[in-house]
Each structure stands twice: as structure tokens, then as C-alpha cells.
Amino acid sequence: MYNNEFITDKVTIIGAGFVGATTAYALMNAGTTSEIALVDLNQKRLAGEVMDLNHGIAFVPPVKIKSGTYEDCKDSNIVIITAGAAQRPGETRLDLLKRNVGIFKSIVPEIVKYNKECVILVVTNPVDILTYVTLKISGLPPTQVIGSGTVLDSARFRYLLSEHCNVAPQNVHAYIIGEHGDSEVAAWSITNIAGISMEEYCLRCEKGCQDTNRGEIFENVKRSAYEIIEGKGATYYAVGLAVRRIVEAILRDENSILPISSCMNGYYGIEDVCLSLPTIVNHSGVEKVLELPLKDREIKELKSSAEVLKKAIQEIGF
């Protein structure tokens, strides 16, 4: 995908709701990109968000932020999709998924109409299924279509472990893999603190933790989004920062390892479904998905997570 004729750090965000606007704020605040275009059907909301963001430009590295159209995808390196329907009272998860698939059927063709070279980054939930839908609708190579996956879940995992073990989260190396959702898997066997395995660290720590502590930490990871939504209506700060981190890895050609969602091609025997595994991410999007030395139980749980996603994909006819 990447060539010398297509060097740009422009980012277009489809959807100017809480997540889209917060992502734009995170990108401008960190100086990640020099140009951001926001696209949304709600022109009044879009104008307000862009105006608010532009009023802060004096306090951040130089950046151009504009109300855009799909034509802005033409010269964008990354197109981020945060647009989607909100769940209605009494609506099932499947009904919501079907509505979001309908929305994506209108969004994705507009993106590829103007740009077949960009990386498309899906953030809208359920992110794994919509990443798969985007891949199929777009016809782009699997390396160019990714989802935010479990980057945020893994950050929550690292934070909760850091709080429990009283160390900085930057020194906790841990991944949540599989679905960004209820069937996600904690990869305990490769979790370490400063290179020390959790089993070894726990022995040295002398807090006397039991397996129940691990179970509680993992359950808290899975419950986090529900608790935040119950408290404030939506999650957007941390996910905005997670998306910024993915964008940085792409624009800076970092070869960073992030648990993004992408289409599996035989990893652990899993194929034709999008889910999260630690992945080398660079200017092309996916450079390589890593097969980790997981324990048999974790591989079994990962395969079960894949089956949950495949069933949902079949239910929507993809």
C-alpha cells in the first residue's frame, strides 16, 4: 500500500460524536498529525465540535482541523470510523449490529471511492464484527483494514494490575486477546512485570494473592465499560487515547506491537474472522500478527471467542 507518492499524515474521522471528537482532541493535543477532517451527517454538531477544537489550536502543535466531507478521504493516510447507532431501549445487541451494518454499507463505499490506499481504522462497536464487515465491503487488502480491538481492554488490564501490584502501568506487560467484548481472553501466561512472570512476581511480592484475585481483576476489566456507561453514559476519553496510540504507530511507521483487531489467517487454527492478537503495526497497517506461546487453555478460550464472533457474522449474512 505505502509508496513515496502517498506520504501524508492527514487523518479523516467519520463520526463527530463523543468518540470521534475526543479522538480528534487526543490527536491534536499530542501533535500526532498536522491535519484532521471530521465528517458527520449532523452538520450542526459537526460545526460546533470543529469550532471548539479550533479555539484550542493556540495551545497545541500546529494543526489544521476542518469540517470535511468524504472527499477528504482522498488525501488521508488513515480514515477512522467512529460513526454508529446508539442502542435503543429494549433493542437487542443483534438488532443494533444490523443497524450499524446498514450504516457501514453507506460509509465504506464512500471511503474507497476516494481512497484505496489508506488504512481504515474501525472503532465503532461491536468493533471486531464491523471490522470484518468493512473488510468485505471495501475489498481492500486485510492489512489495510483494522479495528481498535483490545488495545483499550489491554490498557485497562495493565492499569488494574498496576494498582493491585503497586507498580507503574508502563512496567506491566499484559494483553487481552480475542473479542473486544464478553468473550475476550486474558493472556495470563505471557503477562509479566519488568520481565518477571506473574507467577514469579507474586512469589516475590509476598501479598499472598490467590487465583481468585486474578479472576476479580479480569472481571473488572470486562465490566469496566458497563460501569463507565452506567456512570456517565458513554466511554470516550480512554478509547480516544487508545485510537491516538494506534494512529501514532501507523503514521510514524513504528513497528509497534498493539493488540488491534484484524482478519485471522490460520493463527491458532482461526480463519476468516477479525479479532485481536498482538500485531506489529506500521505505515502499512498490519505488518505481522504474532502467535504467542499461549497455554492450551488460553488457545481454547481464544478459539471459543472466535466462534462467538463467527456466529454473529453469520447472523447478519456476511
Rank of each mutant, 00 (worst) to 15 (best):
F6V: 05
F6P: 13
G17N: 13
F18R: 13
G20M: 03
L27W: 01
E35I: 00
V50A: 14
N54A: 07
I57R: 15
P62H: 11
K66Y: 15
K66H: 14
Y70E: 00
D72S: 02
T82I: 02
A83D: 11
A83T: 10
A85F: 13
P89T: 01
D95V: 01
K98H: 09
R99T: 02
F104I: 06
K113L: 15
Y114V: 07
V123I: 02
P126V: 12
P126S: 03
T131Y: 02
V145G: 03
I146E: 02
A155I: 11
A155R: 01
F157A: 08
F157C: 13
L160H: 00
S162W: 03
V167P: 02
Q170A: 05
N171C: 08
E184V: 01
W188N: 01
S189D: 06
S189F: 06
A194N: 12
G195S: 08
I196H: 02
M198N: 05
E200H: 08
Q210H: 12
E216P: 00
F218N: 08
V221I: 15
A225N: 12
G231A: 09
A234W: 08
R245Y: 03
I246S: 00
N255F: 14
L258M: 15
P259M: 06
C263D: 08
M264P: 05
Y268E: 02
E271C: 13
V273T: 10
L277Y: 14
N282E: 03
L292T: 05
L302T: 11
K303P: 01
E307L: 09
G317N: 07
F318N: 01
F318E: 14
F318V: 13
